[in-house]
Every structure is written in structure tokens, then in C-alpha cells.
């Protein structure tokens, strides 16, 4: 899968929230650990539902985690 243009701060937020593991986050949002790995690496852009679930887990807004990087800007 090609790298997406959506950057994220999941990795940083995990460590800021008691060094949460990828597996713990995956279990909380209801996906597999491989999906969290892929999102963190920018290989996969999550659906809106999943993005909201991740944001709710960390108690932040979606835009605080995911940023869209427009190539033209």
C-alpha cells in the first residue's frame, strides 16, 4: 500500500498516555495491531469512524491527531 498524505501523532500520543502499547490501543478501538502499525507508519488512512474512536481514546479532537498534508501548499 502506498503512503498516505495524512500524517498522524498516534505514536506520540500513545507514549504521552502512559506508554500505551499498540495492542492496547488496537483493543480499545476494535482493530488489529497491524492496522495501528499501518496507520502510525502512514501506510493506511483510517475511516472517519476509526479516526473518531482513536481521538476519543486519547481525549483529543480528530484534527489534533490527523493532519492532511496538501502537496500544493
Amino acid at each position: 500500500m502506498a503512503k498516505s498524505e495524512v500524517k498522524n501523532k498516534i505514536r506520540r500520543l500513545r507514549f504521552e498516555n502512559g506508554e500505551m502499547t499498540q495492542q492496547q490501543l488496537a483493543d480499545k478501538v476494535g482493530v488489529t495491531r497491524q492496522t495501528i502499525i499501518a496507520i502510525e507508519a502512514g501506510k493506511y488512512s483510517p475511516s472517519l469512524t476509526l479516526a473518531f474512536k482513536v481521538a476519543r481514546t486519547f481525549g483529543v479532537k480528530v484534527e489534533d491527531i490527523f493532519q492532511y498534508e496538501d502537496e500544493s501548499s
Binding site: G30, V31, T32, T35, L50
Partner: peptide, 13 residues
């Protein structure tokens, strides 16, 4: 399973 709460499959799968 990888963990007890592991899902069967998710949106990426």
C-alpha cells in the same frame, strides 16, 4: 489470538 480482545477482522482487513 494476539490478545483476548482481538477482533476477527477490521476495516483494513
Amino acid at each position: 489470538k494476539q490478545s483476548t480482545a482481538e477482533v476477527e477482522s477490521d476495516e483494513r482487513d
